[in-house]
């Protein structure tokens, strides 16, 4: 879903033929180029982002996010970082959950998305405990051990060096803090996978064309999902970054997975 698109950085070197290149969907591009290409995608979809999310996921993305919230363990007074927070769906809830004594930082690499999110949250009356930061997930501009909880919903697959992003998140988490990554993943069943492929590559780009007048961005969305590491690979990357007690939960048959890891 376009939700799936919140940007935060750029590429993955694992599937690339040379270390100077990375994938942008199914295409190979220079690493330096990917960030701006992803930025273009999000500049293009920002205005219709929420509408497309609801349309493409039939509203199920709200339940995926709600499950992530339930697993977050956020309490009053906590400091929460919502990376690739996009239009602020998670931030809005976190803002109320942490209360006036806590704080939520909505970070996104894309200024257009950040502006849409800020306007939306302010229109909801959510002010006072939310900070907005334009930041690259690979090099977070926060001091060590700053946050109780870090979340990243549908943003990691747009990051160029995912391992760098996980390392960076590990650094800013407080000891005892937890990271939650909600991201598209690999469907567990072959049948579901085939249906999902038809939907992603044939229906989704057309919906993008009709609703947002942007077929390419939504084709990129489908392609970037296929290039994203599967559940076990991402869990391994969590562990490599230093996270402990890492696990994941498949949602909607593995179309989406919620990964969790703790810093002790």
């Amino acid at each position: 879903m376009s939700d799936a698109n919140t940007p935060s950085g750029t590429s993955d070197t694992q599937a690339t033929p040379t270390t100077q290149q990375t994938h942008f969907g199914f295409k190979q591009v220079d690493k330096a180029q990917k960030a701006s290409l992803v930025a273009n995608v999000f500049d293009s979809v920002a205005a219709k982002y929420d509408v497309m999310n609801d349309l493409m996921s039939l509203g199920i993305h709200r339940l995926w996010k709600r499950y992530a919230l339930d697993c977050s363990g956020v309490r009053a007074g906590h400091k929460v970082l919502d990376i690739a927070g996009g239009t602020g769906d998670l931030t809005a809830k976190f803002s109320r959950m942490v209360g006036p004594g806590g704080s939520v930082t909505l970070a996104d690499i894309n200024l257009s998305m950040l502006k849409v999110g800020r306007d939306k949250l302010r229109d909801k009356g959510l002010v006072g405990n939310i900070d907005y930061v334009q930041a690259d997930a690979e090099s977070l501009p926060f001091s060590d051990n700053s946050f109780d909880v870090v979340t990243m919903a549908f943003g990691l697959r747009n990051v160029t060096e995912k391992q760098n992003a996980l390392n960076s998140i590990y650094r800013v988490l407080k000891p005892g803090g937890r990271l939650l990554v909600l991201e598209f993943s690999k469907p567990a069943s072959q049948h579901l996978s085939k249906i999902y492929d038809i939907y992603s590559f044939h229906i989704l780009p057309r919906m993008g064309q009709i609703v947002a007048n942007d077929e390419e961005s939504y084709r990129y969305l489908a392609e970037s999902i296929r290039m994203h590491p599967d559940q076990e690979t991402l869990k391994g990357m969590f562990e490599q970054a230093g996270f402990e007690q890492c696990d994941y939960t498949n949602l909607t048959g593995g179309i989406v997975a919620l990964h969790r890891g703790y810093k002790f």
Binding site: I60, R62, L63, W64, R66, Y67, D70, T249, L251, T252
Partner: peptide, 10 residues
């Protein structure tokens, strides 16, 4: 999808 998320949403 955990049904609990749907119930809490409702």
């Amino acid at each position: 999808m955990p049904g609990s998320a749907l119930l809490s949403a409702i």
